[in-house]
Design a protein around this nucleic acid. Structure first.
Lengths: 222, 222
DNA sequence: CTAAATTTTTAGATTTGTCTAAATTTTAAA
DNA sequence: TTTAAAATTTAGACAAATCTAAAAATTTAG
């Protein structure tokens, strides 16, 4: 099935509002989408009829299993484009979102899967939000300050706080960005500096820099 | 000014039809866009009112200077995306067009200029059609079989005829694709093989392969 | 537990892009 | 040069997505 840009925007907005509250109200959605309550009601009838929503008039709505699946694919497209714009085209994190809002509606699955591959299957977008994989699965967001990463464990940079020009310059020089895969090798108590392995190289990072870098790694099944 | 997807498609179609005939008829445009003559007339009134067309009812239409400029920017977006899809995501030349039809309507100038830079400012798309530069200028299309390129002249691969898997495998091995910059160094009459310089490397090409590769180079101002 | 306030839905209108069918204009042919 | 054929435009309708204003349902407060 194919959806209009407008339908997709509604599905995505409902998904995000559901992260806060399991049921979404007409007004909340209208505000999120900068539209009017009456327009929301109209669209809710439409999405309900397509089986994407659980909707009881006057009592709010939530995504059905189908609706949730579609929302995750839209979010996948959005976040992969954000990653591309940031990593490959050098856009700043503020610019990336608006552009991805447009690109996300190009819906070819093959295109998105190829883009994913081209980007080396990143798990997190430039804002540190997880990117659903090609089956719609999301990694849990378990961001960890780099300094707390267990040693010799494959991890991925998923968020970088502080976006000052100075810090970005330093990160660029060290070839570290969102999606960079690394391992923590050594930790020196004297100045809290750490040594990382990135691909085959060894890189040293100061305490100040490490504080601003967050990583995730595959948790061992418990 | 901003244009709807539909307006953009009309402008682009008129531009292409004008390459054949300087004036475009309602029916020709309707057929090109798989729509009805009445819809075309409606849109022509709209584009006329915006000053993008020269339009005399019953006598066809042509793009105004403004309309042409906009059409060229849309074509720029289309062809840069085609180049990206082919070179970076590995799509075949048949698949590329349909996907670019959607991507071309994302209209941020900054995005397209960055994409252009990322792709290293290619002059030709995967079909060998010239890509307008950021000012809307098109290189003339002066495709030349690789074997006829003057020696020691910087040139760019702009078209590859024959898309058999075997040939693509060979091209890939030799790191040759649309946009590859090269110079002809030597030509051996014995077997008509040629030697090229690509970046800093020397590459040998058989007569059969050379026949399928077309290049352009900057003509000296005459 | 009623009445006011709030939220949501309905009714009816608007815009964009499209369509069919009818009317008009141009072109071509006898 | 008149008339039939072809091309184009106009008129009127429709679907999608939106809006405003009014009506209906729910919530909250006294």
């Amino acid at each position: 099935m194919n959806f209009s840009t407008s339908e997709e925007n509604y599905l995505k907005a409902i998904y995000h509002l559901q992260e806060e509250d399991s049921t979404v109200s007409t007004n909340a959605l209208a505000e999120k989408l900068s539209t009017k309550a009456a327009s929301v009601t109209d669209m809710m009838k439409k999405l309900s009829a397509k089986g994407l929503l659980n909707y009881t008039p006057y009592y709010g709505f939530s995504l059905s299993a189908d609706g949730k699946k579609i929302a995750l694919f839209i979010i996948r497209r959005h976040r992969l484009w954000e990653f591309f714009l940031s990593q490959k085209l050098g856009f700043s994190w503020e610019e990336v979102h608006q552009l991805a809002e447009e690109l996300e509606h190009v819906s070819s699955k093959k295109l998105i899967d190829r883009l994913d591959e081209f980007l080396d299957f990143p798990s997190y977008d430039p804002h540190g939000d997880p990117i659903p994989d090609s089956k719609g699965k999301l990694l849990p967001r378990n961001n960890l300050p780099l300094a707390l990463l267990p040693k010799n464990t494959a991890a991925e940079v998923c968020q970088v706080t502080n976006q000052s020009a100075e810090m970005l310059e330093l990160l660029k020089h060290k070839n570290i960005g969102i999606g960079t895969r690394l391992e923590l090798k050594k930790h020196f108590p004297f100045d809290q500096s750490i040594e990382l392995k990135i691909k085959t190289k060894t890189v040293t990072i100061s305490e100040q820099l490490a504080k601003n870098i967050f990583v995730t790694y595959e948790q061992i099944n418990q």
